[in-house]
Structure formats: C-alpha cells, structure tokens
Amino acid sequence: MSLGGTGLPFDLILFDLDGTLIDTAPEIALAVNDTLEELALEPVSPEQVIRWIGHGTRELLVQALADRWGMTPQAVQAAPDFANAEACFQRHYAARCGTRSQPYPQVIPALDALRSAGVRLAVVTNKESRYTDRVLDAHGLTGRFDRVISGDTFPVKKPNPLAVDDCRSRFGIARERTLLVGDSAIDVQTARNAGVAIWAVPYGYNAGQPVADAAPDRLIEDFGALQPDALLTWAALVDT
C-alpha cells in the first residue's frame, strides 16, 4: 500500500461518534427515561436504547414511544402528542449531554497522534448538531477535528455518502486515501456508498448485533490500531 503526503496509509480519517468515539448510551438512556417518566410511561431498558441508537435522536425517540404506546413508528410520528413528546425529550437530552458519557479507551491519544502526523480528522454522525456539539465540547474533543458533520448538517444522513464526499472534496483527499471508522452496519454501508475503506470497532451499538456481520474491511479491537506506528505496521503487512 502506498503512503500519502502524511507518510501514513490514510490522509483523511472520518469517525462515527456514538459507540465509536464516545460511549453515549448511558446518558441517552437517562434522557429517554426522563422523557417517558414525564409522559407517565414505564421506562425502557438500557439494552433497548442501545438497539435504537444510530439513526439520530428523533428516530430513537420514535422507537421508544412505539414500544411504550404499542404503536408503529409511523403511527407515533403522526400522533397528536408526538410534538410535545419530542420537545420534552429535547429538553431532557440537552440537560444530559456530556454528563454520563466518556471517550472510549485510547481515543484521545490516537486522535492527537494522527493530528500531529498531519492526518485530516472529521466526525460524521447522525446525531443532531446541538447534541453533537455538546458531547464533543464536554470531553474536549471539538478542537481535535477539522470538520464535524451532524445529522442535520445536510438534508440527508448516513448511509448517504454526502458527508464523506464533502470532507474529501473540502480537503482534496482521494477515495483510496480515506478511511471511515465506525461501529455499525450504517457506517459500513456509508463507506461502501462513498467508495472508501471502512474499519469497525466491536464495542459499539449496531442495533445490538455484532458489527462483524456487516463485513467491514477490518475489525479493530480499539483505537490503538489507529496510532501512526500501528497504521504503518498494518500497511507493511498488507503489502507482503
């Protein structure tokens, strides 16, 4: 594998947020149950919330209400009470953002090492920007990225490849020099749609299913595999 201008196999690395960079499930579950309590509904389990993460917080709330109201997601969105429930959730999640989440092990050292090596870094998440910004700020991560694309940055979200294409175009990086790192089948499909490499971490959410089932290009145990020396070792092995 040829090395780019950074001297590494990739010049642009894009990261999913929830379940990849940061373990956000605990605070999301709390916000969901804060909302259900205010609506006089029974709570849901953390495991249920994890299965619903990935398509943005609105869709997650729809799934929770569908479960508690005994309705289809389509019926929930058409229900007269949905707007009030959504406003309630927005208030609770804004209060919870950054309070019970934490970066996964080795994330911050790997990001810092990649930045020092000149790699362009971006976040591509389906989470709405008001929550993305709060979570990144809470953990001192905002300044570590050259670009942050949230679920409401463009009219479309992952697995649409627009966010990846935007970053590549903005930084002038070819597809073969671009890597997406995620935790879900959504991320794998996004990378496939964008024509870029996809590596996945096994500790994320992915609707409660093993991400290996989505057939990423590589499954990495943790962000230690993204340290520059580890990337060079991997590239040398690929070439042998």
Score class of each variant (00 low, 15 high):
residue 1 M to I: 03
residue 5 G to L: 09
residue 7 G to L: 04
residue 7 G to I: 04
residue 8 L to H: 01
residue 9 P to K: 01
residue 10 F to C: 06
residue 11 D to V: 00
residue 11 D to M: 00
residue 12 L to K: 03
residue 13 I to A: 00
residue 16 D to H: 02
residue 18 D to N: 07
residue 19 G to N: 07
residue 24 T to N: 12
residue 26 P to A: 11
residue 27 E to N: 01
residue 27 E to D: 05
residue 27 E to P: 03
residue 28 I to H: 09
residue 28 I to L: 14
residue 28 I to N: 13
residue 37 E to G: 13
residue 38 E to R: 15
residue 39 L to V: 11
residue 43 P to N: 10
residue 45 S to H: 08
residue 49 V to W: 10
residue 49 V to Q: 14
residue 53 I to C: 03
residue 53 I to W: 04
residue 56 G to L: 04
residue 58 R to G: 12
residue 59 E to S: 14
residue 61 L to Y: 07
residue 65 L to Y: 03
residue 66 A to C: 02
residue 68 R to I: 11
residue 68 R to M: 12
residue 68 R to K: 15
residue 69 W to F: 11
residue 69 W to P: 08
residue 70 G to K: 15
residue 71 M to G: 05
residue 72 T to G: 14
residue 72 T to N: 06
residue 73 P to W: 10
residue 75 A to M: 10
residue 77 Q to H: 06
residue 78 A to I: 08
residue 79 A to T: 11
residue 82 F to A: 12
residue 83 A to E: 15
residue 88 C to F: 08
residue 89 F to N: 13
residue 91 R to I: 10
residue 91 R to T: 12
residue 94 A to P: 02
residue 97 C to T: 10
residue 102 Q to W: 06
residue 106 Q to L: 04
residue 110 A to K: 03
residue 110 A to G: 09
residue 111 L to C: 13
residue 114 L to P: 04
residue 118 G to H: 11
residue 119 V to K: 08
residue 120 R to N: 13
residue 121 L to C: 12
residue 121 L to N: 09
residue 122 A to I: 10
residue 127 K to R: 01
residue 128 E to L: 14
residue 130 R to H: 14
residue 130 R to K: 14
residue 130 R to D: 09
residue 133 D to S: 05
residue 135 V to D: 02
residue 136 L to T: 11
residue 139 H to T: 00
residue 140 G to N: 04
residue 144 R to A: 11
residue 146 D to V: 08
residue 146 D to N: 14
residue 148 V to Y: 03
residue 149 I to H: 02
residue 150 S to F: 00
residue 151 G to M: 02
residue 152 D to A: 01
residue 152 D to P: 01
residue 153 T to Y: 01
residue 153 T to Q: 01
residue 157 K to R: 15
residue 157 K to E: 07
residue 160 N to K: 05
residue 160 N to R: 09
residue 162 L to R: 14
residue 165 D to W: 03
residue 170 R to F: 13
residue 171 F to C: 08
residue 174 A to E: 15
residue 176 E to H: 07
residue 176 E to R: 13
residue 178 T to P: 09
residue 179 L to R: 07
residue 182 G to V: 05
residue 182 G to T: 06
residue 185 A to H: 05
residue 187 D to C: 09
residue 187 D to F: 06
residue 187 D to M: 14
residue 188 V to Q: 14
residue 188 V to H: 08
residue 190 T to G: 13
residue 191 A to G: 15
residue 192 R to Y: 06
residue 194 A to N: 04
residue 196 V to F: 00
residue 200 A to L: 11
residue 202 P to V: 05
residue 205 Y to T: 08
residue 206 N to V: 13
residue 208 G to K: 10
residue 210 P to W: 06
residue 210 P to A: 06
residue 211 V to L: 10
residue 212 A to Y: 04
residue 215 A to R: 08
residue 215 A to P: 03
residue 217 D to F: 00
residue 217 D to A: 02
residue 217 D to W: 01
residue 218 R to M: 06
residue 219 L to Q: 00
residue 219 L to R: 02
residue 222 D to Q: 04
residue 223 F to C: 07
residue 225 A to K: 02
residue 226 L to H: 07
residue 232 L to I: 08
residue 233 T to A: 15
residue 233 T to V: 12
residue 234 W to A: 01
residue 235 A to W: 03
